[in-house]
Design a protein around this nucleic acid. Structure first.
Lengths: 173, 173
DNA sequence: TATTATTGGTCAACATGGCTGACATAAATC
DNA sequence: GATTTATGTCAGCCATGTTGACCAATAATA
């Protein structure tokens, strides 16, 4: 596989679908890199001014999305160790962004939710990211958005996709 | 903006395009998070067994894509500090993944290219990521791929997009 | 030619956010 | 009563970003 691009040009019979050529797959890799970087950039700036990082953002985002979730829930979404999460979560609780209360059914559980302060920050962060998406979506139209969602969903590991489908039924339409 | 979803349901006159509702924008955020994590996961595993990280991957990838690029070129693509790059790049040179030679036009420049060892690793890493894209693209079809590319391109900062268009004319079709 | 700007390297220090391992505790469950 | 589960905590390591300071070689220019 010295040069698949070359192959595609010189050997019509080996021609793949237009979107499965090596150059198209590489474009996917590159677009993901650049888009993800800019997608997170603005929020990172806001966070850094507050002494917070991207890890804090993830916690705030997912707790905001699903109030009263447990630490376990969060761990299985973020797929990091509890020690890593603990550091970030403790900080957010200490700074008053996150409120935790004992679970009723299982008293060991800490049910996590955003405080008012946390909610304000969550809205601010989600807002800048949503604006970016709104702008991109508007520029591309509904069919492109559907394709975007479809491809991203299929980039997710299959088992993880099944888990997510259960947890967030509306994530995949 | 207590609850835009609620608003969309209860106030038909405030209804936005189907793909610009808050829930759709949030879906974009979430899909990006999960897809990016899994997109990088396999490569990260390969790299960690070699004592390398994602930062090394980026260098290997972009040097592989554009041999004989300079350190400056790489810095403006990766958008990290030269000190950060230096650490990673020195390591890759020491480990024999990257070859550097003095620039002919400007003797200060180090022109970077992959060694045979570097090329082997680059192909292995690119291959696992390309396979993921090939699988996702196949599952979704060409229209979805076009939409995917279109949306990602529009998520990139406008000025950056212009720069990229000059550097990699084929990145945006 | 002398000065300035560019390209790049280096050293030191620090922060974030992953990781592992070990151990503690309370509550639920078998 | 014993075991499993949910969670916390402490200690340390590693990768990868940051800033600031400073140096050297080369290129461009006044």
């Amino acid at each position: 596989m010295a040069d698949i691009n070359q192959m595609n040009k010189t050997s019509p019979r080996a021609q793949k679908s237009l979107y499965l050529r090596k150059q198209d797959l590489r474009r996917g890799i590159e677009l993901m890199f650049f888009a993800y970087r800019d997608f997170t950039g603005e929020a990172d700036d806001i966070l850094s001014r507050l002494g917070l990082g991207r890890a804090h953002h993830r916690v705030i985002y997912f707790v905001g999305r699903q109030p009263n979730m447990t630490v376990s829930d969060l761990l299985s979404i973020l797929k990091i160790t509890k020690q890593s999460l603990s550091r970030v979560l403790s900080h957010l609780v200490a700074e008053g962004y996150i409120h935790q209360e004992q679970g009723a059914r299982d008293k060991r559980q800490r049910l996590l939710s955003l405080t008012d302060k946390g909610l304000v920050l969550e809205e601010k962060l989600t807002d800048v990211q949503c604006k970016r998406f709104a702008s991109a979506f508007s520029a591309c139209g509904g069919d492109a958005v559907a394709g975007f969602q479809d491809v991203l969903a299929n980039l997710i590991n299959e088992d993880e996709r099944a888990d997510l489908r259960k947890r967030y039924p509306d994530l995949f339409e």
